[in-house]
Amino acid sequence: MSTIVVFVEHKSGSARRASLEAVGAARATGMNVVALATGPGAGELAAQVGAAGASQLVAVTGADKYSPDGCAADVVALVQSSGAKAFLCANTSAGKDLLARVAGALDCVPFADCVELRCEGAVFTVRRPVLAGKASITTQSDSPVLCASLRPNTFAVASGAGAATVSSVATKGGKVVVASIAAKPDAKLDVKEAPVVVSGGRGLREAPHFKLVEDLAAAFGNAAVGASRAVVDAGWRPHSEQVGQTGKTVSPQLYVAVGISGAIQHLAGMRTSKVIVAINKDAAAPIFKVADYGIVGDAFEVLPALTEAVKRARA
């Protein structure tokens, strides 16, 4: 049976959900899935990646500090030794970085941020958005190894299989090293991966009013805060929270847009969300054209009431 190598990100032995989605997508092709993980705790992932569909886990040792080119070399070695037909990872910050390094080393075409993956015969096709989601392209890979990163929140995590067998291998090491990480204050959810995103825009009038957006996000419990380009450019919020064409593209289960008019660049970044709620004073705002549910009203009036109602609904 042909093999697919999947890079699995984790935090001290707890796998990133988007990585398990990639394992599930790999397994759905019917091929044998080998997971590769690196760093402290990598060996503890056997049950998690096994349940998601991997038969083997390769834990890379000696990589206490992440090296992106070192990790790429480790992936390439595994792809070559296993004769893998594909390499997959989640389209996260580390994933898309790794994808192109691996593809370059294997002289294959990389496909980033895929939302569909098919394997018929031995031929892989992927679908991926372009122009920030204004269109999508379905492409057949003619490279010897399909190299693709998968959009988080898009592929299902499989369940049912047993634990993966574990082997370990020493890292080849790299020239580029992540010397330190200044962790986010309270392990905040990333806007690309969160199941719920609450985004704010100009309608909030001043940076301190984003507290209302943060409160609503906190009420959901599993939400990340997003922002429109206007408020990022105004310095109210960091670029890491920007949703849209020069920010991040998101597809959460629920997207709540507060005081965002809905410029085409913003709509491109969130229109694949499953459910969209818009709250805006202007009933003619373009955001209402993509929203499933809208409230015409002032954010300062609606948000506190909505936050309380969400808290009660989840209590």
Partner: peptide, 8 residues
């Protein structure tokens, strides 16, 4: 979609 209403 639909507008579910106005204000709080």
């Amino acid at each position: 979609g639909r507008i579910v209403g106005e204000g709080a």
